Amino acid sequence: MSRGVVLVTGASSGLGEEMARQFAALGYDLALCARRTDRLDALAAEIRSATGRRVETAALDVTNAAAVPAVFRRFDEAFGGLDRVVVNAGLGKGAPLGTGRAEANRETAMTNFVGALAQCEAALEVFRRQGRGHLVLVSSMSALRGMRRSMTTYAATKAGVASLAEGLRAERVPGLDVSVVYPGYIRSEMNAHVQQRTRFMVDTPTGVRAMVDAIEKRKAAAYVPAWPWVSIGFLLRVLPLSVVRRLT
């Protein structure tokens, strides 16, 4: 018996890919979407073979405003409802502002924030109609303060994602639970190019296990993994910007 249906965007790699595996292992059926359908279909075949769960896939570029609600509606109709939507698709591109790479920053902003907004709109259409649902937004520890250099735009988009979650919680939509997850340093395809050793970095399965545990508990907000990121999150919020600058 299925525990419900989880829709995960950006599921062809990184955190989204591993979340799909772990949710399936917990007994959920899956609606998976991403731009790279070859990898998505390979993941779906792997999960079906390993768990016997139902997995449906769809191509989706979250910056395509018309495609997002269409894909979400298609999944909703296929499964007869959605229990959880994980707004995960994102980019880690970026450059210091004013250095000639405005397109990289714009692409990050369009995917990470405008795309997240489109996903929230589409998910809430389903959840409002069925009178229940769990919306999960994947933010970042970088969202807690303004970041410098190549992180400036990325951090700003993730702060926007967290603000969307808080606004929806404040609205108190009947039957709706809203969670925002702030991952710390989790090794994934997005940061695989970083060669230097990073303190507190954990492997993908370990980091995602902490994310999935927080999501399953329907926490309003979670810094993951809890150690050391709960403490670091507190410090980031209270330290002067001059100190935060040296830490980041």
Score class of each variant (00 low, 15 high):
T198C: 00
R218A: 14
V202E: 05
G80S: 08
F113W: 05
N88W: 08
A210P: 01
H193T: 08
R106M: 09
L15P: 00
R106Q: 09
G160N: 07
D61A: 12
Q196C: 03
S179H: 07
A95D: 13
P240I: 12
A143G: 04
L32F: 05
Y28G: 06
R39G: 13
G146F: 02
D61Q: 10
F127G: 09
V181E: 07
E121W: 00
C33Y: 14
P183D: 13
G133M: 05
C33P: 10
E216V: 15
L144M: 07
A20Y: 12
A170K: 10
P69R: 11
V230F: 09
V68Y: 00
A118W: 10
L97F: 13
S12Y: 10
D38L: 09
Y182S: 09
L30H: 00
V202R: 02
F113M: 07
V194M: 10
G100Y: 02
D41E: 15
F72M: 13
G131Q: 05
T198S: 01
M141G: 14
A226S: 14
L168Q: 05
N105R: 02
D29N: 13
T99D: 04
G160Q: 08
E166D: 15
V138N: 14
S13G: 06
E56Y: 08
D29Y: 05
T153M: 04
K93H: 06
G81L: 09
S140W: 06
T63Y: 02
G10F: 07
A122F: 06
V243N: 02
V194K: 04
V224Y: 13
F113G: 01
D61K: 01
G90L: 12
F23K: 01
G98D: 01
V87T: 09
T111D: 02
A192K: 01
N191E: 11
A24G: 10
E18M: 12
A104G: 03
L239R: 02
V173I: 15
T63I: 12
S49D: 14
Y223V: 12
A109D: 04
R54N: 13
P69G: 07
T9Y: 01
S140M: 09
R218D: 12
R48L: 06
A102P: 01
T153V: 14
